Amino acid sequence: MQLKQATMADFDQIIDILKDGANQLAERGVDQWQGDYPSLDQIKEDVENGWAYLAVSQDNQTVGAISLVPAPDHSYDQLDGEWLLDTEKYIVIHRVAIHSNHAGHGYATKLFTEVINQVRENPEIDSIRIDTHEDNKAMQHLIDKMGFKCVGTLHGVYRKGEISYVYEMIKPDTK
């Protein structure tokens, strides 16, 4: 798996991947991403700031998208919980989706592994943070499998009445 930094030329492809992700969530009965999040403006901001990436498989297929947002992330200002590490040197994984055409091949695991490997090599980052909707069991399973620890909840940050579980991983040791 390779992460390719997205450009505005990739904008429509990112939108397609994220809309497909929203449809996958809806099919599983998960009410995440069913409103105006992620918005076109949010995706544009991700791309313009260099936070948006495409997930490219070994056979050079674009299989997914992800945003890696540097601190501070004010979505977490209302965290009901406690961070593993009190630091401003973190990144946040947001807006992750593997297109349904590429589901079932372990690409989400490979994508997270690549992010973790890149963080391991970056002296500017101490931890990785992520959150997901309380009903998104597939993402919760992936986050747990990758070694993140649940540190708390968010209430109504993305949509009124919505609960999100928040996770953190302290940067793995460099090997």
Rank of each mutant, 00 (worst) to 15 (best):
S57Y: 09
K44H: 04
C150G: 08
D173A: 14
A108F: 04
D131M: 04
I163C: 08
S75N: 15
D173P: 13
V157T: 13
P172N: 14
G147I: 12
P38K: 01
K160R: 11
S100H: 03
Y53N: 07
F148I: 09
V63L: 02
E124Q: 15
V151M: 05
D73F: 03
A6D: 01
S67T: 07
I15N: 02
I125F: 10
R28V: 01
G161D: 09
G81N: 14
I17A: 01
S67Q: 00
G147Q: 10
A108C: 14
L54K: 08
I43P: 01
W83C: 11
D126F: 00
G64C: 08
V157L: 10
T113G: 13
I116F: 10
D36K: 05
F112C: 05
Q13I: 07
L154Y: 09
Q118I: 09
A22E: 05
Q24F: 00
V96K: 03
D20T: 03
R120D: 02
G152Q: 09
R95S: 00
H155V: 05
D86F: 02
V47L: 03
S164K: 06
N117F: 10
L142Y: 13
D73E: 11
V151Q: 06
E88M: 03
Y53E: 02
G156E: 07
I91E: 02
N23P: 00
Y158V: 08
H99P: 00
L85C: 04
N60P: 04
K19Y: 11
A52V: 02
T62A: 10
E124A: 15
L111F: 08
L25H: 04
D46A: 11
D73G: 02
V63H: 10
N49L: 09
G81Y: 12
Q78Y: 12
C150H: 14
